[in-house]
């Protein structure tokens, strides 16, 4: 479960104002909204990259508002992957992995097992995103934050990745907060939120 209670922060002149949301354990919430509406900032505050000026972040039953990122149990797939360029794909996925078998299993399930020896610079944008997703999943977080994780994938690979991701989420029952611009990603959603100008303007429960 992930919960934000009246979360506020300021980044330069931008303000995140009074954001409250709750995603129950195993839920998959989609956040949509225009560019610069605060979606990425919200994920950064939840993950611990930015501190809130007020409000709370609750992961499971624990208040992690001021906990360091490594002890929150919250994984992140950033918008551009941010794969470590000095490591090959395998060592990227292994970086925080809880087991070697998991690395190979994830790579096979997401169809990147043939790329494991390749360095980041030789991967396409879509391949980087899938490797970044595998890297975050291999750490087995209880909450996973996704920031446009499939934006560089073509339609076919996107559908395959979404299907595999949905299957994995059912198996592992982790909680997902997913920022996207793509309407078809909503197929995974159990909840839907919309951000605008630093505020969570509307929320609805899907299906």
């Amino acid at each position: 479960m992930i919960e934000c209670r009246a979360l506020c922060t300021r980044v330069g002149s931008f303000q995140l104002r009074d954001v409250s949301l709750t995603v129950p354990a195993g839920g998959h919430a989609i956040i949509t909204g225009p560019t610069a509406s605060g979606k990425t900032t919200l994920l950064e505050v939840i993950a611990g990259a930015a501190m809130p000026t007020s409000g709370h972040v609750i992961a499971g039953d624990v208040d992690v508002t001021f906990a360091p990122p490594e002890s929150r149990g919250i994984g992140l797939v950033p918008q551009h992957g941010y794969l470590f360029p000095h490591l090959d794909a395998r060592r990227n996925i292994e970086y925080g992995a809880v087991g070697q078998g998991l690395v190979d299993d994830l790579a096979r399930r997401f169809g990147v097992d043939h790329l494991m020896q390749r360095f980041v610079s030789s991967l396409s944008g879509g391949e980087r995103q899938i490797v970044a997703l595998c890297r975050a999943l291999a750490a087995r977080p209880s909450v996973l934050l996704l920031d446009e994780p499939f934006s560089a994938l073509d339609a076919t690979r996107r559908t395959a990745a979404l299907t595999e991701f949905a299957s994995l989420q059912r198996e592992w029952a982790f909680t997902v907060l997913h920022v996207t611009h793509v309407e078809s990603d909503a197929i995974l959603a159990t909840q839907r939120f919309e951000m605008n100008d630093g505020e969570l303007r509307s929320a609805s429960t899907a299906i």
Binding site: E44, A47, G48, A49, P68, P69, E70, R72, I74, G75, L76, P78, Y82, F84, P85, H86, Y95, G96, R135, A136, A139, P141
Partner: peptide, 26 residues
């Protein structure tokens, strides 16, 4: 980019190990 360090920390690194494993090699 400091976001590399932050990603490393979401993968379980302390600030020192993120420096040692990511920032310094890069």
């Amino acid at each position: 980019d400091r976001r590399y360090e932050f990603v490393a920390r979401t993968l379980g690194d302390t600030s020192w190990s993120a420096f040692r494993r990511v920032t310094f090699p890069m």
